[in-house]
Design a protein around this nucleic acid. Structure first.
Length: 768
DNA sequence: ATTGGAATCGTTTTT
DNA sequence: CGATTCCAAT
């Protein structure tokens, strides 16, 4: 590895510490980066530097980010500095998707089929419930959510069911231990892993198969990990194992922004990096390029109240800017109105785009009032809840079908779909099958292939179940998931594409037909969502074909691979993954989701005692640590703001149907007066509120004409890439989505979700 | 077997 | 308050 002779253009426009970080090649490197210190820039430049100046092959670089969205953005930014092709050859993903991918490749070494399922929290809950039922433990004393969090906590510390049982010394933990063991058993039987397992099994793979680890160490000669302050013990082990031979581990992060301790993140990973990796070079990035003076000063004053920390000197070259607005409101409605008024004002007077504004809150439930206020004002907004679409029942059903196809052992998926749509297989029949499976040491799937053996089933049930199993089997054959070794793997060119396959599943399963029966509105919506899922499938397929690394691209990818990749992506989407930075909308999200982002205008809601810091922080086992984490969370929120920051709190707030008086957050008292502008928001006239109520419908429509809906006024012509041309009939913004009813010239009326349907506005004057 | 209504429950943050 | 679950009626 030769040193470049001339100074690289990749170092242009960087400060001295930034250059040091970018041009550091071999050996461990820790970049302690304060908020807004150009960390992302340093990482992208460093990757480009390794490839362009040092001559490292891009496929030897592994960069791990916190979200898939961050990975995508980083790839795009690196592509501007190296070639598109080189950027695509990098391995750029999250810890969890890296694990999923590697485990997929080496599944058989751990005794898993390559189609193993990844269980999300809903699946986990079902599995825990099943375990509780099997053990005849009342779920009222041991709520699945509680048990699950105990299990997850243990797993994060690499404690398995056996070790947990050994350590259990009281009634609660002894009971949890039994559930833990059974839960582990159920997942194993179902060939499934939960999120924690993804990390644990990779560690296990590394430990049990040194040869495989060795190959990976050789491949990934340069490892970069972003947001290192939020890595947990398993992730540390994975990183350390991969970098063990070459010691080329670059960690970037900020201890002051560690906010996932509750999820098992271990802040010591970053604090003790120099001990873990002796000889590490440490670079500190302290200059802030994001926020104006008052905002940064307030953030600094706040974080200084944390005792267990290494201080960083934060400074900015930007001017003082505006003071931090500290707004006192009457209640949460008033608070939302205040936020809307200010955003409207800067939008009008300063010409700041809606997409440059964000509203943060501690709990998702606080978003509702804010949504109402934005909707009433006709201001477009998006909520960072990437998983919302996949959490819809109709989408989960389709996904369960696909999962049951790729992983026959997945009983959770099978049970979800066996009577969906209703085909007359009730609880009694299912119990009979389960009992038979248990008694004969067979899987659920093995039994339903030939249900005639289950004599306790009625003839009718036997036939229906047989038909269901045959249908599944046919799909498995098509997609190449038939275990029969006699059957040759179908050649890709004879397979349907992914989209076509998914469409077939939706139709032949009867899901489509079930929603077609009823012309009621919710069913129309479900149908529209299924349509959107098909569109997503097509897009995913196109992207996959476009981004493939291998070059024999004249052959389409096997359906099997596409299906596995899609299911994996669906399992691992995060809340921020679907946030669109140029959607033209105000973004609403939790403080946790805000990490790594920046906005010119930021509002943080609910700075109240018990909310931020959250009540549960005080009840934790180490309340001091938890309080410091809440303060860091607040610090993260504040430091997202570039120009205008508003912190608001209400005198009274209604939470879970109970109205209570609220006390301002102690954090507000920690901000020096000289950086604040105290504002008392006066509630609107009651008259105004009543007008809103009475005129609701028309006022809503009138105001919406200005906002998101305004882009698609009633009567305008639109084009949809599947349904063709249509006329907008009505538009309604309910919940997070704006639903749009369109009468299409060819296919009739459809209800679409604006955020997902790529509607194109068409001018009737144009020729079409 | 399926459906809808009533009752109950639990309330942070998430890959 | 909202989601989920349970139970009774069809």
């Amino acid at each position: 590895m030769s040193e470049p002779t001339m100074q690289s253009a990749l170092l242009d426009g960087l400060t001295e510490p930034q250059r040091e970080a970018v041009s550091h090649v071999d050996g461990p490197l820790l970049v302690l980066a304060g908020p807004g210190s150009g960390k992302t820039r340093v990482i992208t430049r460093r990757v480009a530097y390794l490839v362009r100046e040092v001559g490292i092959a891009p496929w030897q670089v592994l960069a791990i980010t916190f979200t898939n969205k961050a990975a995508g953005e980083m790839q795009a930014r690196v592509a501007e500095l190296v070639s598109q092709r080189q950027a695509r050859a990098l391995t750029l993903c999250t810890f969890h998707s890296l694990c999923a991918r590697l485990l997929r490749q080496h599944a058989q070494l751990l005794g898993f089929p390559p189609g193993f399922s990844i269980y999300d929290s809903d699946d986990q809950k079902r599995a825990v419930k099943q375990a509780l039922e099997e053990l005849e433990i009342s779920a009222s004393n041991f709520s699945p959510a509680n048990v699950l969090s105990s299990i997850s906590k243990a797993k994060n510390e690499l404690v398995d069911a056996e070790a947990y049982t050994a350590a259990a010394d009281n009634f609660y933990s002894k009971t949890v231990a039994r559930v833990f063991a059974r839960y582990t058993d159920i997942l194993q039987r179902n060939a499934a892993m939960d999120f924690d397992d993804l990390l644990l099994y990779l560690v296990q793979l590394f430990r049990g198969h040194p040869q495989t680890l060795r190959e990976l160490q050789d491949r990934y000669q340069y490892v970069l990990i972003d947001e290192y302050q939020d890595t947990n013990h398993a992730q540390f082990l994975i990183a350390a194992a991969l970098a063990q031979r070459h010691q080329n581990l670059c960690a970037t992060g900020d201890p002051d922004q560690s906010i996932y301790g509750w999820r098992g993140a271990n802040i010591r990973n970053i604090l003790e990096f120099e001990q873990q990796f002796p000889g590490a070079k440490v670079v500190r990035l302290e200059q802030n390029y994001r926020s104006t003076g008052h905002i940064l000063a307030a953030a600094d004053a706040l974080i200084r109240h944390n005792t267990a920390r290494k201080h960083k000197e934060l400074f900015t070259a930007a001017g003082e800017g505006a003071r931090v607005r500290c707004v006192t409101c009457f209640d949460e409605r008033d608070e939302a109105d205040a936020a809307v008024e200010f955003m409207q004002k800067v939008h009008d007077e300063q010409n700041i785009a809606w997409s440059g504004m964000a509203v943060f809150y501690r709990m998702n439930s606080l978003s509702r009032v804010m949504e109402d206020a934005l909707r009433n004002a006709g201001i477009p907004y998006q909520i960072a809840r990437g998983t919302a679409f996949y959490e819809r029942a109709e989408i989960r059903n389709v996904v369960a079908y696909l999962r049951a196809i790729v992983n026959p052992a997945d009983e959770v998926a099978l049970l979800r779909i066996i009577n969906m749509p209703t085909r007359g297989i009730g609880d009694r029949s299912i119990e009979a099958v389960q009992a038979f499976a248990l008694g004969n040491h067979m899987t659920f799937d093995q039994v339903i292939i030939d249900p005639r053996r289950v004599t306790s089933l009625s003839n009718r049930a036997q036939n229906t179940i047989a038909a269901f199993a045959a249908m599944l089997r046919k799909w498995r054959k098509t997609a190449g998931f038939d275990d029969d070794p006699q059957q040759p793997y179908p050649p890709p060119q004879n397979q349907p594409g992914l989209r076509l396959f998914v469409e077939d599943v939706i139709r032949q399963s009867g899901l489509h037909h079930a929603y077609l029966n009823d012309k009621s509105d919710p069913d129309q919506e479900r149908l529209a969502n299924l349509g959107e899922f098909v569109t997503f499938t097509q897009q995913f397929e196109d992207d996959l074909e476009f981004n493939r690394e291998d070059d024999d691209a004249d052959q389409p990818l096997p359906l099997r691979d596409k299906l596995l990749a899609m299911l994996e992506q669906i399992s691992l989407v995060s809340d921020v993954d679907n946030v669109n930075s140029d959607s033209g909308a105000v973004t609403l999200m939790t403080l946790h989701a805000a990490k790594g982002l920046e906005f010119p205008v930021v509002t943080i809601l609910g700075l109240e005692d018990g909310l931020l810091p959250h009540q549960r922080a005080g009840e934790s086992s180490r309340p001091g640590d938890a309080l410091e984490e809440e303060r860091r969370l607040c610090f993260v929120g504040i430091t997202r703001a570039m120009r205008y920051l508003t912190l608001s709190h209400a005198i009274q707030r209604t939470i879970f149907g109970r109205t209570m008086s609220a006390i301002a957050s102690p954090f507000l008292r920690e901000l020096p007066e000289e950086h604040l502008e105290q504002i008392r928001h006066s509630a609107d006239d009651e008259q105004d509120d009543q007008d809103d109520h009475v005129l609701g419908e028309s006022l809503l429509q009138r105001r919406q004409a200005r906002g998101l809906a305004g882009e698609y006024p009633i009567g305008c012509y639109v084009r949809h890439n599947e349904f063709g041309l249509g006329v907008v009939e009505s538009i309604s913004a309910e919940g997070a989505h704006t639903r749009c009813r369109v009468r299409f010239l060819q296919v009739g009326r459809k209800t679409l979700i604006l955020q997902y349907a790529k509607l194109e506005r068409v001018d009737p004057e144009d020729d079409f």
